[in-house]
Design a binder for these strands. Structure first.
Lengths: 136, 136
DNA sequence: CCTTGAAGCTCTAGTTGCTAGAGAGATTAT
DNA sequence: ATAATCTCTCTAGCAACTAGAGCTTCAAGG
């Protein structure tokens, strides 16, 4: 399978696959006589794993850890669980932060009834932190 | 005021202030006899504005637009409102995405009851997209 | 007045996860 | 055989900083 086909099947762009190879997330595959990459089903599965993990927002480092873990199937899976759990916690924090932000942006955008910039609540809110409800 | 004092008062790190100067978010200030930056209250206010906007997650480009707008106080404030509104919409989308992610991570982490990697639900979930509830 | 230690200066390079482009070579279909 | 489409390597760029080297300046105490 060529890199383009692998790309089509996984949804990972061609340059990104080559980048992952550089980053040693995927191992360098066989080459054709003319030096082009040729992939097998093994690499397809590995890249699918990576793609899915990236879609879930996991960092490259975390994915590398998971890949290392999955290479040792007899080890306890607590570590893998921990990585996923950490990511869940981080995700929840991000959500909480963004929701605070949402409230503040809503307040700013609905508060503006001035006609020109000198009365603009958006500008004022950004200039004067004291207008914020919530110390962020 | 030295760059360090400005940094302390705004919460923006010293190298970041210099970076903003390079990016022309703040104008290059006066210098002391020995070539050190000396800031006035004007720059303090402007940097406070920038800090606040950055904390709210606005991109540098958006902030530059807002700064340009605030430099023309007689113009209508609809543009500033639009920038804030766009950011609010983007924020809401991010929240929605993260919440989907949260659901999936929760499913993954609570689903794992195997003892070793070969039964690990985390690894399996990431390998097999078909286990996902929701096409992401 | 002089020293000393903190703070400031410029410049370069690194971070993360890619993406874009140049210019050359390989493969495939007709 | 030839044209069209991949693919190759390499370099550089993005955002928004951060870190470090090696040097100069400032402010305060003795």
């Amino acid at each position: 399978m060529s890199i383009g086909e692998l790309s089509r099947k996984t949804g990972v762009k061609v340059p990104t696959i080559r980048y992952y190879e550089q980053m040693k997330l995927v191992t360098a595959p066989e080459r054709s006589a003319g030096n082009q990459r040729r992939y097998s089903i093994v690499e397809l599965e590995r890249l699918t794993f990576i793609k899915h993990a990236r879609d879930l927002g996991l960092k490259i480092d975390a994915i590398r850890e998971l890949l290392d873990l999955s290479a040792h199937p007899e080890q306890p899976c607590a570590d893998a669980n921990q990585i996923a759990q950490n990511h869940l916690n981080a995700t929840r924090e991000r959500i909480a932060k963004l929701q605070k932000l949402e409230v503040e942006l809503l307040r700013i955008t609905t508060g503006c009834h001035g006609d020109s910039i000198k009365d603009c609540y958006v500008i004022q809110s950004l200039s004067d932190h004291a207008l914020c409800q919530d110390g962020h």
